[in-house]
Each structure stands twice: as C-alpha cells, then as structure tokens.
C-alpha cells in the first residue's frame, strides 16, 4: 500500500475542508477501501477519517422516520434501529461480526457495490441520502456500478428511512463472500409497494417495477407466480447465468413478501 497523510477531523465542516486537498479521500470503516488500497487500485495521498465525527454517528427515530448517521456501523444499526426491523435484520447479516463492527452505512452507500445490501434497503424504502451539501432521493442516488450522484469531495452525513407499513429483505448469499448473489428488499406503504433488487443487475441495484405493480394490487407472494423477471441486463458470471439470477429475483422477492 502506498503511504498517505492521515487526518481525523471531529466536525463535518473540517472533513469537507480536508477533502479539498489534492487526491484526498474519505475513510469510514475501511472494510472496502483498505483492501482496495492494498491492491493499489486506490492510492489517495490524504485519507480523511470520518469516524471521529460525533454528528455523523447514531440512530434517531421519530415521526415514522429512522435517521442514521453515515458513520454508524452495521453492528450499531443491527442493535439499535429497532424502529425499522427489516433494516436491523439486513444489517445483522452483512459480512461477518468483525466487518459489521467497522463497516458503516455511509461507506456502503457511497461505494454502491452491485452486490451490497444497503442500496436495496435505501432504494426500496425511498430513503433520502443527506450529504454535507444537499439531500438526494435514493431514486436519483444510485447511478450504476460503483457510481453515485455524489460530487467530488461530497460526503454522506446521514440517511433517512421512512418506515414502511410492512417490509422485509431476502438475500441469497454467495457463500464465500456473504455478499448477495441476489437480494430483494420489499417495502409496502400507503402509496404502494416498492421492490429493489441487488446482486443481480449489471448496473447495480434496480427496482423491479412489474412486481411492484402486481404487489400494489395484491400484497401476496402468490401474485408473482405468473410473473418472470426479465433476464436483460442481469449479471452472468461464474456464480450464475442471467437466467439463474432472474429466477432468484423472483424467488427472493416472493420470500421477502412472505416474510414482510
């Protein structure tokens, strides 16, 4: 790994200022960035740790909304976001305990790995991504593989989840990495049903709109029996063909509906 200068600011304003330096990059839990730096796929000259910023940590629930600081770890969400049970269950199954003790929700959303779990929760819930500069709707935030609406030097400070009437996440784990081979997050609100799929799409997380329409009329797993997820744009790799993933999209969505 190339060496770098390390800074650990204690406020969002100081972090944003530090990130204006040339080749500066944010470090949160490091569970993705550190392996990437070891492979020299990233070589920042300044690393700005976000984990010393109190205003970016913690979970607040009020008025049907759960707001989570971006530097809150997966383990803290699993233990503390009880107002949104589907989200705590998701957080408690990310990676393994050591990854959950360091990895953060902000790091996961900013990274937008096509097989990550949190993007599915954010998209299905219609969450709002709060940054140092603005608020971004989840529908506008995820923009393809490892790509988001974040500008250079912009950091996620919090994520706001409206708590649905019913919700659940069903994940088919890739057993070696524990990432989602395919995962479906289903959220039902008075406005209808949203279904977000991770692990399967070549462009990362996406909404399965045909299933949303069917489930909005009748929220039952059986209503999806006659529906097939399109294979177009699904990932084909050594773990599974697009057809295999299309089937998983349907099965995982049905399991999530049954569990919601």
């Amino acid at each position: 790994m190339h060496n770098f200068e390390f800074v650990k600011p204690s406020s969002i304003a100081d972090a944003v200022a530090a990130l204006r330096q040339e080749d500066a990059q944010a470090l949160s839990g490091g569970q993705t960035l550190m392996p990437t730096m070891k492979q020299r796929l990233a070589a920042p000259s300044v690393l700005v740790s976000l984990t010393g910023i109190a205003e970016m940590k913690g979970i607040r629930a009020s008025g049907g909304v759960v707001e989570i600081g971006a530097a809150t770890t997966h383990a803290e969400v699993a233990a503390g976001a009880g107002a949104y049970p589907a989200l705590t269950a998701l957080a408690g199954n990310i990676g393994d305990p050591a990854v959950r003790n360091r990895g953060t929700i902000g790091g996961s959303l900013a990274n937008n790995d096509p097989a990550a779990d949190y993007p599915a929760a954010a998209l299905a819930s219609g969450a709002t991504i709060v940054t140092n500069a603005r608020e971004i709707a989840a529908d506008d935030f995820f923009q393809g593989l490892f790509t988001t609406a974040l500008e250079e030097g912009e950091i996620i400070t919090a994520v706001r989840f409206p708590v649905p009437e019913r919700a659940a996440y069903a994940k088919f784990q890739q057993p070696a990495s524990r990432f989602a081979l395919t995962g479906a997050f289903v959220a039902k609100t008075s406005a209808g049903v949203r279904v977000a799929i991770t692990g399967a799409g070549e462009d990362g997380v996406f909404r399965w709109t045909d299933a949303e329409a069917a489930l909005s009329g009748n929220f039952s797993a059986a209503v999806l029996n006659g529906l097939a997820a399109p294979e177009d744009g699904l990932i084909g790799d050594l773990h599974g063909t697009p057809a295999y993933r299309a089937n998983l999209v349907k099965v995982m969505t049905q399991r999530a509906v049954a569990a919601a």
């Binding site: 470090l27 490091g30 569970q31 050591a98 360091r102």
Partner: peptide
C-alpha cells in the same frame, strides 16, 4: 471490546 480484523484497521485510526 469488539471483534475487529486487525489487518483491516489502521493503527493511527
């Protein structure tokens, strides 16, 4: 008190 992978944490942090 929490389990952490020491290969994936910076000492300075």
């Amino acid at each position: 008190g929490k389990a952490v992978k020491s290969c994936t944490a910076f000492a300075v942090d």
